[in-house]
Each structure stands twice: as C-alpha cells, then as structure tokens.
C-alpha cells in the first residue's frame, strides 16, 4: 500500500531554528532515506521550492487563467513529500514519526493513502 507523507512547513518556524536543529533535520532526513531504502519501503522524495515561485492555472469560467502565487493563502505550505510503500497505515505513521520534522513544533506531517500510481515503468 502506497502512502504519501506530506511535509507541511512554516517559513517563520524554519527561520527560527537553531544551528543544532537545522543540522539535526539535515542528518535526520538522510538517515530516514537510508533506512527506508534499506527496508525496501522507499519510493521517492521531492522537496518543493518556495510557494512564491508558484504559478496557479485555473479556469475563469471560459478558459484556463494563470496567476502568480500560492493556491491558498496560508501560514503553512507544502514543502515536499516522501512516497513510501508499506504494509499498512500504522507503518506509514510509524515512519512519519521518524522524520525529523515530527520533533519540531510548528512543522507537521500528513499521511495519506495513494489510490492510483503510474511510475512510468515500461
């Protein structure tokens, strides 16, 4: 069963991290990737650019219209994700807890099931 572990980040929280916290996050993610790769649960991970770089395409009722900026105005935004393949939801949550963001107040991880996947294998 595939799950997307979505990393919700808050720029003000990131600004106020101590050097130790910053380092712990970097090392924690590297360790998390190594561990899930070793267990055969890792599929992929992506970190996303700042939402100020976003363009939004949506219908204005007649045709697609392009606007600047994030889809919704919010304090937290989608910072990136891990895609994993695990036995069940309990294991996905267990993994999410091991991501260093889970120990930083103000950051959060969202665990959601994937209902369709095409990884482009031929």
């Amino acid at each position: 069963m595939k799950y997307l572990i979505v990393m919700h980040v808050d720029p003000t929280v990131l600004e106020h991290l101590t050097d130790e916290q910053q380092q712990a996050i970097g090392e924690g993610h590297a360790a998390f990737m190594a561990k899930t790769k070793e267990s055969g649960e890792f599929i992929s991970t992506q970190a996303l650019g700042d939402p100020s770089r976003s363009k939004v395409v949506r219908s204005n009722g007649v045709e697609p219209e392009v606007t600047d900026g994030p889809f919704v105005e919010a304090k937290e935004f989608l910072g990136g994700f891990y895609l994993v393949d695990v036995e069940d939801e309990a294991r996905a949550i267990e993994l999410a807890k091991q991501i260093p963001d889970a120990r930083i107040p103000g950051l959060a991880l969202e665990v959601r099931p994937v209902v369709f996947a095409d990884l482009g294998n031929d």
């Binding site: 790769k37 070793e38 267990s39 055969g40 890792f42 393949d85 990884l119 294998n121």
Partner: peptide, 10 residues
C-alpha cells in the same frame, strides 16, 4: 506493483 525496480530489488 508500480514500484521502482530498486525498491523491489532491495
């Protein structure tokens, strides 16, 4: 299973 080969190999 629509998984990367590396995942299955591991």
């Amino acid at each position: 299973y629509q998984l990367p080969e590396a995942t299955i190999a591991q």
